[in-house]
Amino acid sequence: MAEMRSLLPRSPITLAPRGLPSRTMAYASPVIALALTLLFGALLFLALGKDPMAALKVFLADPLRDTRSIGEVLLKTVPLVLCALGLSVCYRANVWNIGADGQLIAGGIFAGATVLFFDVPGQTLNGTVVLILASLAGVIGGMAWASITALLKDRFNANEILVSLMLTYIAQQLMLWVVNGPLKDPNGMNFPQSRVFSSEYLLPNLMSGSRLHAGFAVMLVLVAVMTVFIFRSFAGYRLQVGGTAPAAARYAGFSSRSALWNALLISGATAGLAGAFEVTGPIGQLLPSISPGYGFTAIIVAFVGRLHPVGTVFGGIMMSLFYIGGEMAQSRLGLPSAIGWVFQGMLLFFLLACDTLIENRLRWRATAA
């Protein structure tokens, strides 16, 4: 299991050479990685017979050309940032949750079932109340799914990487069963989907002319709340100490079990809320594919943002550009649909390389000093 952990990205470096703060080096790493990604992306476009500058314009600039396009970019940041917020807490606590996508799907199932329960003829319950209940149901669903990982890790010392990852595939199968069984639309021409939710049970738009919904505002509030929790609360301090210095945490009387459960439940809650916002926002119903892999991409978002809540917003915007830019490159340039995933993979690769090289350089200089 130690070998598997070594393959995962590390948290921001802490050593620093003389005269250069470690924080500067840590935050320079994603900037360098992004620059290398764009450089090698341009070379990739050239190898595919495309004008590199024109292709990069389609990939990165065109998704921001007007209000509607900007709204789409910000719309995709909502699930990415929400999942990354919880993952940042987990990774700071040294809990390697890889199953945010499954927790998002579980939250979407719970939220969708709640809406369908109230979305019946003659129902008089206010739409805002139903949306609040659906959001809470999504949070509960994500927490319940994450608690399975916490329980197996706590009781049987099961590896949380494998458990959380496998639970993602189980969540996908659960969604397939739900939309083909108890929540299937009887008038849906046998397609695996639920009924489309009534408009009063959908999140209101924030920006006219776009699909950006109120979940974006909730996301920004949670970014602020999570920043205070991690850096200004005793609970956040205790959780981080348990992850970075277990021996010191035990000496101080901090519970490692509590850190495990709190980290996974927080991560499950934010991912479940992301799922609730997806089904009550742009999708408007339950579908087998409510997530194109947001939970996995959020791992990159978390580390590009240096495991900082505010940083995840910038990382989420960048990954959202890669999603939409990949779709535009496919339709306008005739490139494969996987081009967006290639850019995501390159960014992660260069981020890992920069972190590793910078960390080793700092260690060598510290040893030499």
Rank of each mutant, 00 (worst) to 15 (best):
G86Y: 07
A329C: 15
L176Y: 09
F110P: 01
F40P: 02
I32K: 10
A16K: 11
I170Q: 03
I358V: 13
F296R: 00
A276S: 09
L75S: 12
M25L: 15
L206S: 12
M318E: 01
I170E: 07
G345W: 05
A144K: 05
K153Y: 02
K50H: 14
F229A: 13
L165H: 07
L321H: 04
I358Q: 05
Q330P: 03
T297G: 00
V179D: 04
S194Y: 07
G284W: 02
R365D: 08
G188S: 09
M219S: 03
M189Q: 14
A93I: 05
A274M: 04
F45A: 11
P282I: 12
K57D: 14
L265F: 03
R92Q: 10
L333M: 15
M328V: 11
S233Q: 13
R10M: 13
F254W: 13
N94W: 04
A217I: 12
S210T: 11
M189V: 04
I266T: 05
T297D: 07
E160K: 05
L43A: 14
L174A: 10
T128F: 12
V130C: 06
G345P: 02
K76E: 01
L80I: 00
E72Y: 06
P9N: 10
T312F: 00
V178C: 08
T356V: 05
S258R: 15
F110H: 01
L321I: 00
Y169K: 07
L335F: 06
T227L: 14
L34E: 04
S320G: 02
Y323G: 00
Q285K: 13
P204L: 14
M207F: 15
A368V: 09
Y169H: 13
P186R: 04
P246I: 13
V58K: 01
P121S: 14
L335Q: 10
F254I: 14
I358C: 05
S69Q: 12
Y294T: 01
Q123T: 14
F229Y: 15
W177E: 01
W96T: 03
G284H: 05
L125P: 02
V218H: 06
G138S: 03
P30Q: 01
I300S: 02
T128V: 10
V95F: 03
F296P: 00
S29L: 05
I324D: 03
T244G: 13
F350P: 12
F234Y: 12
A28H: 08
A55K: 07
D66K: 07
T356Q: 10
N205R: 15
W261S: 04
S210L: 07
A113P: 07
A26L: 05
E200L: 12
V223E: 09
I170V: 15
A26T: 03
Q330V: 04
